[in-house]
Computed example of a mutant assay.
Amino acid sequence: MKLIQDITPLCLSAGILREFEEYLRQEERSVNTIEKYARDLRAFFYFVGDRAVTKERVLAWKESLVVRYAASSVNSMLAAANSFLNWAGYPEYKVRFLKIQRGVFSKPEKELTQSEYAKLVKEASKKGNERLSLLLQTICATGIRVSELQYITVEAVYTGWAEVNCKGKRRMVFITDKLCRLLKKYIRKQKIRTGSVFITKNGRALNRSNIWRDMKALCKRAGVKPGKVFPHNLRHLFARRYYSMEKDLSRLADILGHTNVNTTRIYTVESGETHAKQIGRLELIIT
């Protein structure tokens, strides 16, 4: 274990950070989490410079983040720093997260509607990008994370379910009959014999940046605002649709792979417009 007071920016990036990343790997944290923590910690190290780390300097870094980032982003960066400080043996230097009141309604400018989702799928098909059309439908019809797309394999399609391993948790994801039929047809057409269904021309699994870029390219022609179009919003749409039909938050949490039901609540928040219409249907205005 290193003493934080002896850390310099050079040895942080070359040594301590590497040791901490290895610790996170041993803890079976996801690749994305490790990369995110490393990125946030580099910002923290840069702020501290060659000075000794103290509680006051950690608080000063927190204050500098507050004026530049949204509260949720600040908290995610503080999580990285707190985890590092705890690992390094200085838990007394950890700082509190910002308090964020849970939103009652989602922001209309961020919520992807079902009709907008349909426009994106149709535009992908119109452009002849069958892979993208099916990819959008696969994420939205299963509720998986974009990082879990790799588990939608030829074998999974032919059995009707995929075993997903994410963040140290395994869960079963069902692939509907209708989606299976579409994917089987695509698999035969592309002559994919085994492994991931969604691959590049070189046979490699699609990564997040490939998918993000392809989705953004649909926005203008489909008439959907770019701020609404990103892979995770398809997962949110799945969650809202499921909850509107079943009203079973615990089951939805299991389907999405959430340990905490409070995380699932965020996914089921609807727009204020939807709530206003529901209240209007109460028909309590007399005159």
Rank of each mutant, 00 (worst) to 15 (best):
S115Y: 02
S76A: 08
Y93Q: 13
S106T: 11
E92V: 08
L59I: 05
A79C: 14
S64K: 11
F44P: 12
W87M: 09
K167G: 11
S115L: 05
E163W: 00
L136P: 07
K126S: 14
E148I: 04
Y90Q: 12
Y90K: 14
Y90F: 12
V67E: 13
E148D: 12
G49E: 00
G89Q: 01
T113Y: 12
S64Y: 04
P108W: 03
A71S: 15
K62P: 06
W87I: 00
K55R: 15
D40Q: 06
S64D: 13
K167P: 12
R145M: 08
K99Q: 10
A118I: 05
S64P: 02
K107M: 00
L59Q: 15
N165W: 10
F105G: 13
T113G: 07
W161H: 15
T142P: 15
Y117K: 02
A81Y: 05
R96H: 07
K94C: 15
V146H: 11
A156N: 06
L132K: 08
V157Y: 07
G89H: 07
A162F: 08
S64C: 04
L59R: 15
V67M: 05
E163T: 04
K110N: 13
E111V: 15
K167R: 15
L134A: 02
R39P: 03
R42V: 01
V66L: 12
W61Q: 13
L85S: 07
I100C: 09
V67T: 10
V157D: 02
S76M: 07
T113E: 14
D40R: 10
L120F: 00
W87E: 10
S115C: 00
E155D: 15
K55E: 14
L134G: 04
E148T: 08
F45D: 06
D40K: 01
G103S: 15
L78P: 05
S83M: 09
Y37N: 08
N75C: 07
S106R: 14
F47H: 13
